[in-house]
Amino acid sequence: MATTNRQATTLALAHALSAAERGLAVFPLSRTKLPALRSPHRDDPAAPPCHGECGRFGHGVYDAATDPARIRDLFAAAPWATGYGIACGLPPHHLVGVDLDTKSGTDASAALRELALRHLFTIPDTVVVLTPSGGRHLWLSGPPDVVVPNSAGRLAPGIDIRGAGGYLVGPGSRTDHGEYTTVPGTAHLAPAPCPPELLRLLLPPPRTHHPTPQSTPQASGAHGQGLVQFVLGAHAGQRNTRLFWAACRAYENGIGPDLVAPLVDAAVNTGLSEREARATIASAARMSGHRP
């Protein structure tokens, strides 16, 4: 059994290093598909949120790397790992995973085809990974200035989306239920660009703003300050997501142009560059139907 485990770990590491060569950030997974390394802060419930800033391993998707030396160190620290995760939302691919499940009792592939017909987009040729349960993972590439959130069943029953802060189980991984494999003829492909019509469906739906007689400049100012505080509370790994969400709400509520500077300042305060912040806000303006 020990020899078998070592072989599985060696194979998983080889597949992980191969994925990293394609620009995909990876980290080790256990047979349960969960991160193989436990949090170093698990015995300290009062510890502040940490996404790897402490420098130790055990932060799940935030451990993901493309550097071969770091990947080998991660697997050396988790000799029981039999698979690897691929972090979504990171450059250069800004990977978006479309997980077509079979456990819900619905035909998720048919649901995706129906969405494609209804919203007039074509599902592109791209990397497709078969799961042990018979499901499929489609790999798509998102725009660099758009943060796609994770979701489960929001697009349609049985369709889960893996975006920023999420991960996909990489092909070649072994789990308690079997092995993840690439569909023949797709392994050599790069993740195809996500169709714009599908991308709009993956983003949080805009809220319709209904002005009321009680709306006042003071109320709008309070709302704007709340959005700024929401951005200021972001940690590494969620800064772009929070900024994009706040900017969308600002434009939907008619205070977007006035809130650009405060939102940029808040984002820079959390660690984003001014260029990143302005690009994210401009993307939110476009998605909300406004000119940035």
Score class of each variant (00 low, 15 high):
72 R>Y: 08
144 P>N: 10
261 A>F: 13
276 E>N: 06
227 L>S: 07
101 D>M: 04
289 G>W: 09
236 A>G: 04
216 T>P: 09
264 V>E: 09
125 D>R: 03
230 F>T: 15
191 P>F: 11
211 P>C: 11
146 V>G: 02
142 G>Q: 10
235 H>E: 11
40 P>M: 05
289 G>R: 00
1 M>W: 11
236 A>H: 06
9 T>R: 15
257 P>I: 08
80 W>E: 09
65 A>L: 13
94 H>Q: 13
83 G>W: 00
10 T>V: 09
255 I>M: 11
203 L>A: 12
15 H>Y: 14
262 P>Y: 14
108 A>R: 07
135 G>P: 02
92 P>N: 09
278 R>P: 04
41 H>E: 04
211 P>N: 10
225 Q>W: 11
239 R>P: 03
143 P>L: 04
248 C>R: 14
14 A>G: 03
15 H>I: 13
244 F>T: 03
172 G>Q: 10
214 Q>P: 05
123 I>D: 12
117 L>I: 07
36 A>Y: 05
47 A>R: 10
192 A>R: 04
224 G>L: 06
221 G>M: 08
35 P>V: 04
200 R>D: 15
258 D>E: 11
109 S>T: 06
172 G>L: 13
225 Q>P: 05
264 V>Q: 02
232 L>D: 13
38 R>S: 15
41 H>V: 03
37 L>H: 13
90 L>I: 04
36 A>W: 00
220 S>G: 09
272 L>Q: 00
76 A>N: 11
240 N>R: 09
6 R>A: 15
211 P>E: 12
172 G>H: 11
206 P>A: 08
75 F>M: 09
7 Q>T: 01
42 R>K: 07
72 R>L: 11
194 C>S: 09
112 L>Q: 00
131 T>L: 07
3 T>E: 15
158 G>E: 02
43 D>R: 04
263 L>F: 07
7 Q>A: 08
174 R>H: 07
162 R>Q: 11
101 D>T: 13
8 A>K: 05
265 D>V: 12
11 L>V: 06
10 T>E: 02
225 Q>D: 09
241 T>Q: 14
91 P>K: 09
18 S>L: 03
